[in-house]
Design a protein around this nucleic acid. Structure first.
Lengths: 207, 207, 207, 207
DNA sequence: AAATAACCGAGACGGTACGTCAAGTCTTGAG
DNA sequence: CTCAAGACTTGACGTACCGTCTCGGTTATTT
């Protein structure tokens, strides 16, 4: 990858000391945070490497040493952002848990995933490897936001469809993303109730 | 509309004789077709006005006289493309009809909608009006591809959920787009059967 | 050459009207004059295309459309500068005429040729064609400054060496350039008298 | 001097024992030879410190510890190169001796001096002290190549102009450099004969 | 023997300028 | 007024070197 995930994380043994001046980790942080800020402010298209350099106080070369191009930079920035943890299901019944989970999920998608989708579209053609990397992040995030939380939500032994968690992970994010991007409408309370009552609950309860 | 065109097309009355050389309608066609071809070949980001001008044989001026920028051009080009008509349901049973419809639908999305999504992401920040236009097209197309066909498919009086057609139109395209874009996997036969058997049929039959 | 000397200058007939917007000649002028000014101020090495663009008010692309690189630009700028005309010999005797001519010649070389020599050294390796062009200018200028003036100076029928004019053109500029560049000393009155009395006159009068 | 080196090499007295690891003299040699090689290959302008470091196997730090910048490095490299000794005059007559001397001289200039001239042009504006240093080397070399050899050549008591040696040292290198740099033509046999017969001999014999 | 100090390689760092590309605007001559 | 052609300004791209600055590690002399 552009940014070394370096590996060798758990060898336990001494790592062979790389020669030369080590990278300044404070630069990494400044670059990624400037990228995230600009991504939120102006979107993927309008985000320029020049602006990232300016805001982060790093030279352009310092950025390019780490990330081969804009798409890689944005990927890393999104990868780096703090991972929000889903809320604990606490409503006591499945419908309440689902409402809470879907509400939180739609906020996460609206706030964070949209920027990454721009990078995905741009990089898709020119760099398949990079596109795959972005997809990996998106999938991992969606899984984290849906899979485990749902298993908790259905702990009450309700009589649900087999593979209910997988179904939820497949359907809920798809419909939320579709609404935000294609429909261009916010995920308000009415929509979330509709999603839970008319789609998710019938689906999960079907056998 | 982005395109100033439209004007005076079928008023029936005398059109005020505009002075000067009239627009060459063959240019319109050449421009839009070059745009569509390039959109398919290289994607939205890599599509350059320069290349459209070169391939269509039109001058850049001629393009900008019609479309104020790249996003508007792509919007018009997608708007212009020939509208495919959904297949007639002919399997005799609901599952067979759904399989046929979903197969055709996923091909349409994979082939045509993806290009427009790039324009949508680009234009979203800079031009809300344009984004809305692109969404209008996407919504209209999805509706055309789902609403009417489904009504035909359920003509047999099966015992379906109320508003089954709306549900289908909301769920099916969302999941297909999500699979293509986020998962990056093709909509092959196995996936389509899964979509129909595990998601759509349970959902439509729930009451 | 990078800049079209275009030719067709004396065809007398209509020149086939090239399509497209013609180049803005005011840009040519501004670019060349900014180049000359900067060349004088900071020298060849420190002259940057960026600075030329800034001072001339032209975009970098406008410069690169005309001149493929810095060396070509400087060549054109020096080519463009106003050609000074040598003084009329009016001293009445050969020595006086030579003193006047050499004085003027050394001023020209000190003021104008030095900048071009930097471009010559830079371009020599990377672009033989360009180097040849610069040499052509240098030779032409030196010839104009030495050949014709000397013929006038020796009009009195003095008993000079055959090919005296060629000898002068070969020796005088060489020694002047050498003094300025290698010795790094100015061509003051004492040096000029030395050059005329100890080198040029003996040489021209030898038979 | 640019290089702080030199010091204390043959004073015979005790040199104040500087603490710390002494400089690795093998590095000096590698750096200077890499510089000379690159200077010949690509010329002054294209010679980069990075390339010198790469070829010499030395780190950039090690170079900059010795030479403050490119011009100083090149100066030192040219200073360091082996000094060729002029051929003994052995033709028996003045013309033959001059032909031999000028032939050798033009080879030296073509092979070694040209590179230094690039450094001279570059450094002239930015660092007068450095330019003066380069001029010192050039002058010293030219003097070594012309002064002493000529005195030997004219040992036969020929009837020559007073200060003939100085005249030769002033005229011959100037014309050779001029031909190579400005005319861009090689110093072949015909030119050398012309230089000796039409310029040097008449000049030296004039009284 | 230890401490100190300068050396060395490697390479990261903030910069400047490069030469290129595409965007969107402007200007010509011809129709 | 339209068209093709192409010049124009603007702004960002990604690259190459510049000269400086850490690093880990290596010799030397001095305590």
């Amino acid at each position: 990858m552009a940014s070394a995930s370096s590996g060798s994380r758990s060898t336990g043994t001494v790592r062979p000391p790389v020669p030369g001046r080590p990278r300044d980790t404070s630069r990494d942080l400044a670059i990624l945070e400037a990228t995230l800020a600009l991504l939120t402010e102006v979107g993927y298209e309008q985000l320029s490497m020049e602006a990232v350099a300016g805001r982060s106080g790093a030279a352009k070369t310092t950025i390019y040493r780490r990330y081969r191009d804009k798409a890689a930079l944005v990927t890393a920035a999104v990868e780096h952002r703090s991972h929000a943890t889903p809320p604990e299901p606490d409503a006591g019944d499945l419908r309440g848990d689902l409402l809470g989970l879907v509400t939180w999920l739609s906020q996460q998608i609206a706030g964070q995933e949209i920027g990454l989708l721009g990078a995905l579209f741009t990089g898709m053609r020119s760099d398949a490897r990079l596109a795959e990397e972005m997809r990996r992040i998106l999938r991992r995030d969606e899984a984290a936001m849906t899979d485990e939380p749902l298993r908790k939500a259905i702990r009450h032994g309700e009589h649900l469809a087999p593979r209910a968690a997988e179904l939820f992970a497949e359907v809920a994010p798809a419909i939320i993303v579709h609404r935000i991007v294609i429909a261009g409408e916010p995920c308000d309370e009415a929509f979330i109730e509709h999603l839970v009552d008319d789609i998710l609950l019938p689906l999960l309860r079907s056998h």
